[in-house]
Design a protein around this nucleic acid. Structure first.
Lengths: 355, 355
DNA sequence: CTGTTAGCGCCTTCAG
DNA sequence: CTGAAGGCGCTAACAG
């Protein structure tokens, strides 16, 4: 990775490195027109590309923003990543990507790596966990973040704060009203179906999942219904599929669930998995089971029967998180970011007119 | 972004910075055990995190790998990104992400930005274009890449070489047999449907799209059939939807296409869009039209009717591209990467038993 | 407005 | 095996 340096450019242009720096990179001070032109020509003819590492070292700021997701191929994270990327581009920063599979230990590593690269800010998407097994890692993650912030780093977390993290300067949370929206969804569904509900959830301790479960139960209560049974499995398509198989067996067996079921999967991907399982067992939606998800993943919208869900502005969330970590401008009204809002989106998968 | 420095650690440990460096970061030379322990403790108590920028400056290599995609939220790119990310982690490197919407001008910018950050290598995914309007930008992109390689950078391109790029040291192409596979697909489809075929393609000049179109026509010829009509629209879900609407109108109107149609969309996302359009117009698949895509996107596999397609090992492709740019090891047999292979995957969307 | 002088934090020769 | 010195490429204070 050798390349021509600023010094070479300066020499070619017959000026000092400082002057060359001033014309080539943004400086408050403007060198003379003629000189500037000569420098620019020299730079051009040498194919000069500033060394961002050196600039970063000198200015102690890197123009880098670190993004932490569970899995970039998961459409939920991919959508957020798109928003982050867009905002980053607006701010003329580049994004560094880290995937962790959701393990707090890995997240801690990622934060350290970002800190090492002197990323100006870090966006953490993806559910935090409060499982006992993660306690220690969570504590380390919190400590790492804390240190990062104390050193001037900006952090934005999507959804929930990191467990045990203090809230130092530079620590922002983009709150997502998972619980409220899940409650709204439950109310709507309860108005359209008076049989039993079952919730397909992720592992206990995942905040996003837990919030949605809690909200849904709350909504049922509000609608005068008893709480739904909760089935736990992994927080992805296969988890939904497994749970779906169980439910299919019940429905098929007749019994209390033979009349059908209202299913709420805590995210769209799981809902799709569950739907696939039901179908594989010969059941039909919404005839034999109504099913709803959460997120309103774009790629899944052409799915049939169209999935009832809660629409979340995933891209905006990424954008907001990124903006929250941006250096404050003068023309910045200093207002906290607008809160994230979502809305219940009912589609065919929970349609009343079933038989 | 202040943080404790190596010098501070050294001072605390009562040794020279050089020694501290040797124990903390990988050096061939091993300081004494006692000394090493003291340094490590000092580092620990200070929460020392090495400054990668400074390390990069000194070693002139950054441990960064740049990834260029059209859109990270597109499942095709997301899958490749996952592979890149995995390989990067194996090599203990971090990935820098850039999205370009496929515009060669943006890609050139991205390459320059990566070069500025002194990324050790760059992976370019996403179709290159040979459209006249892109000529100039393509040339600049090629020049930029060329310079990057000459400066010691490693480049891997997925699918096609960049238009007009020389093939200097460090320039690798991960070839994807789009044409062959499309031909195979055509042969299989032709064996199962003897009506007309129509191809829903991306804009002319997109290599990936063009290759698949060409291959499909070739396959038809091989099967003793005449060439299919080609409908062009944008290379995404909406493009597929638009084209689907047109085809639906034809089929509905009866006429020559009233008996049904065999549709090949050059990628899964477009195929899903087209299917959605047909359905919206009251048509059914595969009864009124058979439809096939390309890529075998994971998220789309639960789609019904299940989409016939060509399976591509997207993650592997990302991994291979990344590995191709890795510094050569001693135990490296120097073999070129294994070629990418795919296979035709027939599912219900093109099933013969329709009526 | 330009040039000179110091570093930014680290690694890597080179002596000791 | 350790320490001292120089430099990676650039910017930010100072002088002139």
């Amino acid at each position: 990775m050798a390349a021509s340096t600023l010094t070479e450019v300066a020499r070619l242009a017959g000026v000092s490195p400082a002057t060359a720096s001033r014309v080539l990179n943004g400086s408050a001070r403007k060198p003379g027109k003629d000189i500037a032109e000569r420098v620019r020509q020299a730079a051009d003819s040498l194919g000069y590309i500033p060394n961002a590492q050196a600039q970063g070292l000198a200015k102690s700021s890197s123009g880098l923003i670190g993004l932490i997701v569970h899995d970039i191929a998961d459409p939920y994270f991919a959508a957020i990543a798109r928003g982050v990327q867009e905002a980053a581009r607006e701010q003329r920063r580049m994004v560094l990507l880290a995937t962790t599979g959701g393990a707090p230990g890995e997240e801690k590593e990622a934060v350290a790596a970002f800190a090492a690269r002197r990323a100006d800010s870090i966006v953490i998407a993806g559910s935090r966990s409060s499982r006992a097994e993660d306690r220690e890692d969570n504590a380390e993650l919190a400590a790492e973040l804390d240190r990062y912030c104390r050193n001037g780093g900006q952090v934005a977390v999507v959804g929930h704060p990191v467990v045990g993290a203090a809230a130092p300067e530079g620590y922002h949370v983009v709150a997502v009203p998972n619980q409220e929206l899940a409650a709204d969804l439950a109310v709507e569904l309860a108005a359209r179906w008076d049989g039993d509900f079952v919730i397909i959830a992720g592992p206990e301790g995942l905040f996003t999942s837990d919030d949605r479960v809690r909200g849904f139960q709350e909504g049922l209560t509000r609608a005068g219904r008893g709480p739904a049974e909760v089935l736990r499995s992994s927080f992805n398509r296969d988890g939904g599929y497994q749970a779906g198989l169980q439910l299919a067996a019940r429905i098929t067996a007749g019994g209390p669930d033979g009349g059908g079921l209202g299913i709420f999967a805590v995210n769209d991907v799981m809902a799709i998995g569950a739907a696939a399982a039901l179908r594989a067992e010969g059941l039909r939606i919404p005839r034999d089971a109504r099913i709803a998800g959460f997120d309103d993943i774009e790629t899944l919208r052409d799915f049939r029967p169209a999935l009832s869900t809660v629409s979340l502005p995933l891209e905006d969330i990424g954008r907001l998180a990124t903006r929250a970590t941006a250096p404050r401008h003068a023309d910045d009204d200093g207002q906290p970011a607008p809160p994230v809002t979502g809305r219940v989106t009912l589609r065919r998968s929970t349609e009343a007119a079933a038989g």
